[in-house]
């Protein structure tokens, strides 16, 4: 087990290094000279040259890259061109908001998705099953902004139950969390249903029944624990998606999270900030995959021993 985790950690470091390289290259090929963007149009060529030198932009690319990596490793991602705020500070502040949104969406999606999936598997072919399956198709194919706008119009404007923008209170997170979480809820309910149907036809479920266990124990202990294995893989990779993919939702609901920060930096060509958000997204993906793999090994003993010592 320990060797497995160690191996995975090492892989993660290598991937993160690759991520830093790709980010650096991307930032260097985007059109537009950062210095010209920062300075006003009438700056003299000498001034431009001086700033370029101060920023180290006249050094060889490799030097610049190592400088970038060593700073990034110390969590120094530079400052915003415009607000002059350190990128790391802005990211941390915004991350709190995104995390709150993503974890609410995640909780809703997991809770409702798994219960709906289990219930529909147990009543296979019944009315509830059809309802869940139909709902899942809609949930998966509906575009986020469309769902967001429908929610805003119905629960926000017409019924007035929840705020439709900003983050004044906890209630402000309800509609965005549903909008963000709905397709994950749909895919989780589908995977749960399929996985559960497969598991309940297994021999060990018959054994559990032959022991005289109550149906509730058979389902919740013997079946669900096995059915969870594919769900965890999906759920884990989706936490990454939720944290990194909240751009549209944050934008529609005017939630000042990282997604909105990224959209704003693109619009304003704030390169250090954009670079920070891109790095953030990559790191979130890599780390959430790492978490999935490790928790996967915890729940499935076969992997624990296979990949272990």
């Amino acid at each position: 087990m320990a060797t497995y985790i160690l191996k995975r950690l090492l892989q993660t470091v290598i991937v993160l290094w690759g991520v830093s390289l790709v980010t650096f290259v991307l930032m260097n090929v985007v059109p537009g000279d950062p210095v010209l963007l920062m300075l006003e149009k009438r700056a003299t060529p000498e001034a431009v040259e001086r700033i370029r030198h101060e920023m180290g932009l006249d050094r060889p690319k490799t030097t610049q890259y190592f400088d970038f990596v060593s700073k990034a490793a110390r969590l120094d991602l530079g400052r915003s061109y415009f607000t002059k705020e350190p990128v790391m500070t802005a990211l941390t502040r915004r991350f709190g908001v995104t995390l709150r949104l993503a974890s609410s969406a995640y909780a809703i999606a997991l809770l409702l998705g798994i219960s709906a999936g289990v219930a529909s598997a147990l009543q296979r072919g019944g009315a509830f099953d059809s309802l869940v399956r139909g709902g899942a198709v809609i949930g998966i194919s509906a575009p986020v902004f469309w769902v967001a706008i429908i929610l805003q119009m119905s629960f926000g404007l017409r019924l007035g139950w929840f705020p439709i923008s900003g983050i004044r209170s906890d209630w402000s997170f309800v509609l965005p969390a549903i909008a963000l979480g709905i397709r994950y809820m749909a895919s989780i309910s589908r995977v749960t249903r399929t996985s559960m149907l497969e598991v309940i036809s297994q021999d060990y479920i018959r054994t559990a029944r032959a022991k005289g266990l109550a149906e509730r124990v058979v389902i919740l202990k013997h079946a669900l624990k096995n059915a969870l294995i594919p769900i965890i893989t999906l759920a884990g990779s989706e936490l990454g998606n939720l944290l990194a993919g909240s751009m549209l939702t944050e934008w529609v609901f005017a939630i000042p999270g990282i997604g909105k920060l990224m959209v704003d930096s693109i619009l304003m060509r704030d390169l250090p900030m954009l670079q920070g958000t891109v790095l953030y997204i990559a790191v979130v993906f890599v780390l959430s995959n790492l978490t999935v793999d490790i928790s996967y090994a915890f729940i499935d003993p076969r992997i624990r021993y296979l990949k272990g010592d």
Binding site: D203, Y204, T207, H222, K225, N226, P301
Partner: peptide, 14 residues
Amino acid sequence: MIFQEPMTSLNPVL
């Protein structure tokens, strides 16, 4: 009752 398939009759995660 004891079943025909010992390989699959026990729960793999317990």
